Amino acid sequence: MKPLLLIDVDGPLNPYAAKPRRHPEGYTTHRMRPTGWTSAESAKPLRVWLNPGHGPELLALADAYELVWATTWKDEANDWIGPHLGLPRLPFVDWPVMHGRAPRGTFWKTQYVLEYAGSRPFAWIDDDITAMDHEYVDRLHPARALLMRIDERIGLTRTDFDALAQWAEAVCPRKGGRGR
């Protein structure tokens, strides 16, 4: 069974903390109104920067991983994010509680990521992962896990995609190599 690749949107795919009005190279601007989006300027939609090159990179990783949204966008990532990247509908973590209390100083998502993963190996890309999350996962998860903190000013990079491919190959080697 393939490991999971748990994908956050804001930070890894949408480098929301980049300099205002200056998206990183390769990104395009989109205006979106996902459910629950509220803005100080109520008529103004959410600005999202997406790199169309990330879709093919994620699809290439789908040979080695089961791709899953692990974002507060939940299933709406399939409607608002996936189409801009050329991704099919993906399963998603349906957080039972968002932004709630977290065990021992961990990020609120971490406990639910472990519940979703069960005993499967997983890689998780998010901009809020801390050393406490690494410690928590190392202590409680029965399989291998890769937690990658992605800089929310930069988003995913070539180095990140290479690291994800290498980790998957080490966890679940495929006959004939990676095919890339």
Rank of each mutant, 00 (worst) to 15 (best):
L61W: 13
P88M: 08
A64H: 09
K74D: 12
R47Q: 12
G86P: 12
G55I: 01
A62I: 07
A62T: 03
G86H: 07
L59A: 01
L58C: 01
E76I: 01
Y65F: 14
N78V: 02
L46C: 14
L46V: 02
T72A: 11
I81R: 09
E57L: 08
L87E: 01
E57K: 11
L58V: 01
V68Y: 07
L46A: 11
P45S: 07
V68A: 06
L85S: 08
D63M: 04
G82W: 06
A77F: 12
A64D: 15
W80K: 10
E57F: 03
K74P: 05
K74S: 14
V68N: 13
N51W: 04
D75V: 09
P56H: 00
A60H: 09
E57V: 04
G53Q: 15
K74Y: 03
P56S: 03
R47H: 02
P88N: 10
W69Q: 10
A70V: 03
L61S: 09
G53C: 01
E57G: 14
H84D: 06
N78I: 06
A64W: 00
L85T: 02
W69C: 08
L50N: 12
G86I: 04
T72S: 13
P83Y: 10
P45N: 13
N51I: 00
P52T: 09
R47A: 08
L67T: 11
L59I: 06
W80V: 00
H54D: 14
V48C: 10
G86M: 13
L58D: 00
P88K: 09
D79N: 14
P83Q: 08
D79I: 15
G53F: 05
G55F: 02
L87I: 01
D63L: 07
K74H: 12
I81G: 11
G86L: 10
L46T: 05
R47I: 15
D75H: 13
E57I: 01
A64Q: 15
W80E: 14
P45V: 01
H84Y: 03
E76A: 10
L85G: 06
L58R: 12
L87N: 02
D63P: 00
